[in-house]
Design a protein around this nucleic acid. Sequence first.
DNA 1: AAACTAATTGAAATCGCTTTCATGAAAATA
DNA 2: TATTTTCATGAAAGCGATTTCAATTAGTTT
Lengths: 336, 336
Amino acid sequence: MEKQTVTIYDVAREAAVSMATVSRVVNGNPNVKPATRKKVLAVIERLDYRPNAVARGLASKRSTTVGVIIPDVTNIYFASLARGIDDIAMMYKYNIILTNSDDAGEQEVNVLNTLMAKQVDGVIFMGNHIDDKLRAEFKRAKAPVVLAGTVDPQGDTPSVNIDYAAAVEESVTNLIQRGHKKIALALGPLSQSINAEYRLTGYKRALNKAKLPYDDKLIYEAGYSYDAGTKLQPVIADSGATAVFVGDDEMAAGIINASIESGVSVPDDLEVITSNDTIVTQITRPAITSITQPLYDIGAVAMRMLTKLMNDKELDEKTVTLPYGIARRASTKSAK
Amino acid sequence: MEKQTVTIYDVAREAAVSMATVSRVVNGNPNVKPATRKKVLAVIERLDYRPNAVARGLASKRSTTVGVIIPDVTNIYFASLARGIDDIAMMYKYNIILTNSDDAGEQEVNVLNTLMAKQVDGVIFMGNHIDDKLRAEFKRAKAPVVLAGTVDPQGDTPSVNIDYAAAVEESVTNLIQRGHKKIALALGPLSQSINAEYRLTGYKRALNKAKLPYDDKLIYEAGYSYDAGTKLQPVIADSGATAVFVGDDEMAAGIINASIESGVSVPDDLEVITSNDTIVTQITRPAITSITQPLYDIGAVAMRMLTKLMNDKELDEKTVTLPYGIARRASTKSAK
DNA sequence: AAACTAATTGAAATCGCTTTCATGAAAATA
DNA sequence: TATTTTCATGAAAGCGATTTCAATTAGTTT
């Protein structure tokens, strides 16, 4: 017993007006006599009519849906961005089709294509790296794309980020000023430009400015996870580094816990600074000093930009850089 | 300069066949002569034709999209379920429209309605409480609904959960066996049935079985957050409780950190058990003993059930209860 | 009251695809 | 070879809205 669906035609008939008129009142078109509007509204209410968004999408060529590509919803960093995106989307009456890409290039392309097939009006992309193939797809897509918390050194896709290089440079400089000579850098895959082209650059700049030698033995490549951190810790300990900058909060938590459990004191023997200021930084003991990012806002601003693009408006700036900060917590010593 | 879109009509013309035939090859209908199929496929390739999912949805009355209602994507517990949902959805070629509800009844109803308007083929609902209004909407919806990690004591909506009451009962019983007489219970809002009707029940059963008195002064109601935990800790400390069962991992982390910082030793002065076994339980020191839940599977199974319902198949069981466990970590002492 | 402008409406085409039904061709059976 | 069956295919009718354009009605202005 399939549930009966009420269509615009039913409303038109019952209200003794044309479908066009019903469509007008549903869409708030002002060219409707108040009396007519009232009559139609009454019928809509009585029949409990809900416009079919799919039909509407086909006719109007706008789905009021945007696609969001995220590496993994369970990653707090990206989930926080997603929250900002969704709130603004809802504010503008858009729905979100959310898909996990696992940061895998092929999957990202697939997902983008199915999103386009669903006729999304726009796409927000989050990821750690953008390769040529993906870039080509962005160009090819007929809906606008905005990057959130995601850098593309090559492309000209609109994006919202903080200045990662500067943030790392400042963090590392702080460490240097406290006397550290051997500072490790624990990152995710160096195949990703966020690591290889931004964080590493910031790190090198700090070293250069302080005339400290660069030693690639101090650069560690690991996964974005707690376990990756615990496994990496002994290696870092062996390197003789007295401080470490970490690219992911969970990884940092792993490093800290493993350090303490192996008798390495944080911050006395090893100072730790991390990147994303998620709740994890407050949960560990010691709590972790971190670059602070306006996570929610990165998502929110990206979505705002996308709404402009979807309405064919010009963007004030294509590449938005939001301010970052540094939250000092117990995993670093106080400044000299 | 709007990008040109290739339609099924274009393909039909170029391939010198009818739209029906193109539709057949696109949908893998076997009733097409191999030679024809090949010819059509070649044209599809050449024109780079992608079927418009919206048009398809209108014509076929199936959108291959399911709605997912989640309290908050940044909540690791629900995000983990969402990940399971998405993976299975992708496996069955469904897309996910994800919306945050903030656990707010009104918002949940709204969101459900816009999902239905978008013609989703089904809905997965996650939340902490289901009231009559929502229940009524579920009934009214013409697409099937499945609850994931979400209980509804009244309703008969299909659902996937663990036996929360039993899990709490076992946890609390463990505490009792270690000699605790005053065991606090720190939960989210008691207006939510997961707390008032499941966790509390399990707690009382454990007490009853051990002939321990029930004292509602030991029941605490707070928010699902780290800060709520830190604020609650002194109150618990004052109560004289020597153990506490907590309904949320972040809250538990807050309680643990605040305890230690105020000189209360965990587990010596206060044993702590929590509910969701998220990564948080491994990050705190001491790590937190927790009920373990197959989070990913809860989502995955829920999505599997939904696909059955969407294809008008019968469910083997409407109420699926997955097994739970208890992971003993340092926030509790070892069993006697 | 005639003439003209502005405000409301409705008819009908469209959006891009699925699906039913009829038909002719090819294969199988008698 | 005549007669059934089975295959392949196309024509055309929707699906449920939006939107253009023309027609009608109501209001204004002389």
